[in-house]
Design a binder for these strands. Sequence first.
DNA 1: TACGCAATGTGATACATATCACAAAATAAT
DNA 2: ATTATTTTGTGATATGTATCACATTGCGTA
Lengths: 225, 225
Amino acid sequence: MENDCRNCAFKTKATSMLSDCSLDQLSANHLELRLKKGDSIIKQGTYSTNVIFLRTGLAKIHLAGPYNEQIVKMVNAPSYLGLPTTFGSKINQYSVTAVSDAEVCYIDLKVFETILDENKEFTREIIQEFCKNELESFRRCANRTQKLIRGNMADALLEFSDKIFKSNTFILPLSQAEFANLVDTSRESVSRVLSEFDKDGIIKINGKKIEILNKETLLLISQKG
Amino acid sequence: MENDCRNCAFKTKATSMLSDCSLDQLSANHLELRLKKGDSIIKQGTYSTNVIFLRTGLAKIHLAGPYNEQIVKMVNAPSYLGLPTTFGSKINQYSVTAVSDAEVCYIDLKVFETILDENKEFTREIIQEFCKNELESFRRCANRTQKLIRGNMADALLEFSDKIFKSNTFILPLSQAEFANLVDTSRESVSRVLSEFDKDGIIKINGKKIEILNKETLLLISQKG
DNA sequence: TACGCAATGTGATACATATCACAAAATAAT
DNA sequence: ATTATTTTGTGATATGTATCACATTGCGTA
């Protein structure tokens, strides 16, 4: 059975809590897709009744601001996407786009709801996830708006290193223009600050490859604004 | 029975969905308090295992940013507070403070979890609430960081008028300094922009009382940055 | 290999707004 | 009532960064 969700169970605590019955239901009712970097997963303004499980890969959540497209969050697998849409207006209020190759499963909302109803542990996991996200968004709000560009850039680099790639060396999955939309600045400033950090020996840039040399200083910059 | 949660049921869809059994359990296991303007409901950094139900009144959610205290959100009753804490680390990651007189109920997390487990409709309501919050935070993120001060001020005024007080005339429940922390600007800029809006006939200021005279213009300012 | 388009580096200028510095007014305390 | 303390109004200056302009490099494609 190729599409057996049991094979997925090890990758996420949440899924591993599902009852056999629910796992079977899930296996029978989902569509799995392989996506390439740049492919759209969710498109703002379109209709949807699917919950999407990001099985592998990295994605950006972004939406139209008054002037620019704003990236509000980077998400890496495993993670559920699109819950606010499916539990809300059914019109996607934001876009999600793969920034690396990715595998996603489309699960019908009805099925997902049934599974929620029948798996308390799973429901609690999902709620906890929401809670974590809310806290994160609060912190992000306080940080982004108060810090100067260098601080926000430092933040973003640390997040990539610690949270997304879990390595001091990684390949920036965003163009500088995209990076600017994540950090709330201009493309040019991203370029400048990146050069500065390199010149100061805090990071080493090699094309799109970034190595973090001095995490302490980066943390300091992040904290001081 | 003074503390009967049934009396509360009409005020919130969520509560009205609870089973009789759960309502009894809730009635027997909660502490109700009357608070005055300025009283702390949740304090960042302290330990807590209570979910808090804001029964009446208006509160601000705020936390320490790198430089200032940042208000991330205004919340009016009826609403649950502190879920991210109780479902997470048990240490409050943000503060909540009453900005008007308020009534709150402290519900033990265990009791709340039991009620969640036993009331699917209620659980779904809570999840939907989380979804709404997430969308709101995304939008806020895109707006706050891209708009100029006038735009954010217009936003905030419209939110007070439409969402919080549901009236064109209201008394600002925040000092200008607090308002600045909500809108991500300086106390002086709040003063200046408020005067501008008044001079331009968009709003009428009378001490702490604000009347919105020209909502269309305000909306325009909000959209144009 | 050569071409064209997209992504990046970097200076000069413009501008929104934070900050500083007080004055005035309003609130609270004695 | 009088003083003290907090809140608000408003000008002048400083500053971080967006914007514009163009050079340069990298990259996919014919």
